[in-house]
């Protein structure tokens, strides 16, 4: 490791992990810019999702962070260091990178694949082996898979190996380019859940590119919606995005049921609960339920009241349809809740 990669790793502080300033990318021969004077800061430890229609410059932006592309104008700083001052190969070894199907090397065993970057960094063999075994546990794969070749793994397994490989040298930043686009919806939801819990344990800064708005809402601490031509349409936390889309484009992109989606990101306790009375409603709701599941339960039971209880079963109060409606109408005071703190919604 050189001084440069050390500086990327160790200058942790309040400064943004990634800072994009006035970045424009114009490909030779193209009339329009792929990315047009983009400004964006990504905080330490946040999971930021770039989302937008194809051709909106989200992938190009991601690829400029680890210099797979270089900007035509503007600058990108990673942990305070201008990326153009770092040798591209060195820079990339210090940033994890995951693509569709993991981009695994078909001629190398799972273990060899995971050990790629440590090998490039010249770690001793024993340490690589140790790290590989640690990582396979981390992504919850059977260590027996280590000697297999990627082609004998399922899509979901390949994707987990891809993440393990990206985490091998413990990089502070992880870039993920549409990593789940080739796996089926069920596995995809599972992988997202795993990524969230990994994120909580490891506190990496993650930039995740997808064209799927549901995936973005499910996953992101913060969402950057791109629009065609490489402009940033809106950059905010999911609940805010759903409550107050900045433009028609964002509103259309979010789809017709954004109110319901926002409710599913908020727990029942974010609503104004009424004090419990002697005649508690027969329907009880756990405090960890989302407002959407609460609404669903109320409608299904043809009632407008339910008792909210915590895990011990002690009564916290009563939730009403009116209280839900008040939040749905966009109560500005409603606290945005980190979506992974809510119970996993059934899809």
């Amino acid at each position: 490791m050189t001084d440069n990669s050390l500086s990327v790793r160790e200058s942790v502080g309040t400064a943004p992990a990634i800072s994009i300033r006035g970045v424009t990318k114009r490909y030779a021969g193209a009339t329009n810019a792929a990315v047009d004077s983009l400004d964006l800061d990504i905080a330490q430890g946040e999971l930021v999702v770039f989302v937008g229609p194809s051709g909106c410059g989200k992938t190009t932006t991601l690829r400029m962070i680890n210099r797979l592309e270089d900007p035509t104008a503007g600058s990108i700083h990673v942990n305070g260091t201008d990326v153009t001052e770092i040798d591209p190969a060195e820079l990339r070894r210090s940033i994890g990178y995951v693509i569709q199907q993991g981009g695994l090397f078909p001629h190398q065993s799972v273990a060899t694949n995971i050990g790629c970057v440590p090998r490039l960094l010249g770690w001793p063999k024993a340490r690589i082996r140790e790290r590989v075994e640690e990582l396979i546990e981390l992504v919850r794969l059977d260590p027996d898979l280590l000697d297999r070749y990627p082609s004998s793994l399922s899509g979901g397994q390949q994707q987990r190996v891809g993440v393990a490989r990206a985490l091998a040298a413990d990089p502070p930043i992880l870039l993920m380019d549409e990593p789940y686009s080739a796996v089926d919806p069920v596995v995809r939801a599972e992988l997202r859940h795993e990524l969230r819990s990994l994120q909580e344990r490891l506190a990496k800064t993650i930039v995740f590119v997808t064209h799927d708005i549901d995936e973005a809402i499910d996953l992101g601490d913060r969402i950057a919606v791109f629009k065609t031509g490489g402009h940033l349409a809106q950059y905010s936390v999911p609940t805010e995005l759903l409550a107050r889309p900045d433009s028609q484009m964002v509103e259309d992109f979010l789809g017709a049921d954004r109110t319901l989606r926002r409710l599913s990101l908020l727990t029942v306790t974010t609503a104004q609960l009424e004090p419990a009375t002697a005649t508690t409603p027969p329907l009880t709701i756990e405090a960890s339920f989302s407002l959407r599941s609460t609404l669903d339960a109320l409608l299904a039971n043809a009632t407008d009241l339910a008792t909210v209880v915590d895990l011990d079963g002690s009564v916290l109060g009563v939730i009403t349809l009116d209280a839900i409606a008040q939040i749905a109408s966009g109560d500005p005071d409603s606290e945005p809740v980190r979506p992974w703190a809510a119970p996993r919604r059934k899809r």
């Binding site: 680890n66 797979l68 591209p88 190969a89 060195e90 820079l91 990339r92 070894r93 210090s94 990178y97 693509i99 569709q100 199907q101 993991g102 981009g103 695994l104 090397f105 078909p106 001629h107 790629c116 970057v117 490039l120 891809g162 490989r165 990206a166 870039l175």
Partner: peptide, 27 residues
């Protein structure tokens, strides 16, 4: 292209990529 992209993204130099990724796969 995905394999090549992954190699670049992980910090392979061009010659190392040729020797340990592209050539074996072309074998």
């Amino acid at each position: 292209p995905a394999v090549r992209d992954a190699a670049d993204g992980m910090g392979y130099t061009a010659s190392r990529r040729f020797i340990s990724i592209e050539f074996p796969l072309a074998l």
